[in-house]
Amino acid sequence: MKNKETKPHWKDKLHEIIYEADTPTGKVFDIVLLIAIIFSIVLVMLESVKSFDIKYHSFLNISEWIITILFTIEYVLRIITVKKPWRYITSFYGVVDLLSTIPKYLSIIFAGTQGLIALRALRLLRVFRILKLARYLGASQHLANALKASRAKISVFLFAVLIACVIFGTIMYLVEGEENGFTNIPKSVYWCIVTLTTVGFGDIAPVTALGQFIAAIIMILGYGIIAVPTGIVSAEYATASKDPNKPPPIDLNSQSCSNCNAKRHKDSAQYCYRCGESLHL
């Protein structure tokens, strides 16, 4: 008796289209999705322009509802095409997909919440998968590790900066006084932080010669302070990049496991590295 080849289940076909970008249909789906996301963000921006919204309110509203319904259908399909939907729902992209879908529905109850549709911009991160750039994201992991390794040093540095701002802010309060806008110590500390970070809103400015001299010192310190955390992170990043135990780069693809939703599989992988599920239909 000949073994009949079983055709892939419709859920498997949908999973391949929705979650993967290696196939022509999957790539087309992702490109169309990205275009829809960009279009929806543009609509929200145009809606915030009152003159444009008054003239084209109906068109903007209907367009947003159409896109929201399409995204809702897509979200539901993403849930039903995986064997463990809770893994997707609680994943980063699952949360982003949900948050980018519900704002229009919330706007029925809470006016103005449709502006949260701008969260859909986070979905554009999928462009790395479509362009197959995921294999080149090792540098981002090195940066994340460098930031993690630097957190203690940066925390101490920021704490020292905060203490300096409190001291300088108090001095400026005593030097300038209420008549020059430094009405209290918290406001003076706020001015010091703004000045030290070289933002300079200009809402408060020293008038006395001594105050201006102190302000000049704070401004100069600001330029030096900017370089410190950059140097700390750069040193850690260089150390991580030169690590001899760092594994060589691996060619990855966009295949997504239909069982556990794991990604970043090797090009030659036949089974999921996490749960052992077959990656091929």
Rank of each mutant, 00 (worst) to 15 (best):
S278K: 11
T195K: 11
I108M: 02
L116P: 09
L124Y: 14
F159H: 10
I41M: 01
H15P: 06
A111G: 07
Y93I: 14
R129N: 15
I73T: 04
N259T: 11
K104Y: 08
T197C: 15
L43A: 09
D243T: 09
G211W: 04
D22P: 10
A36N: 05
F201L: 13
I69T: 11
G169K: 00
Y173F: 11
S51E: 05
G94A: 08
D267W: 04
F39E: 01
K11P: 08
M45F: 14
N261Q: 04
I62W: 11
P24H: 08
Y136Q: 12
I193P: 00
L147D: 11
T230V: 10
G115L: 07
A240G: 05
I31K: 01
L122C: 02
I102D: 07
P249H: 12
L125H: 15
I250W: 10
T90R: 10
T90G: 15
V28E: 02
G169D: 00
I108T: 10
V32L: 15
V32F: 14
Y93N: 08
F168A: 05
L46T: 02
I69D: 06
A209M: 07
G181W: 02
V76W: 04
C257Q: 03
K242H: 15
H9Y: 05
A209C: 08
F92E: 09
Q255K: 13
T113G: 05
L14K: 09
K2D: 13
N259C: 15
A216P: 00
S254G: 12
K132H: 11
L162D: 10
E64C: 06
Y56A: 01
A121F: 05
V49R: 00
P24N: 12
G94N: 04
Y105R: 03
I171S: 12
D251Q: 15
I214K: 12
L33K: 14
L106D: 00
D267Y: 03
K246T: 11
F159P: 06
I37G: 00
G115K: 14
Y93P: 05
G115E: 11
I80P: 07
H280D: 09
N245E: 14
L281N: 07
V76I: 12
L119R: 03
Y19I: 08
I17E: 06
V76H: 01
I66P: 07
L33E: 11
V44C: 01
N261V: 04
E74P: 06
I31N: 01
K13V: 14
S58A: 11
C275M: 02
S155Q: 13
P249A: 10
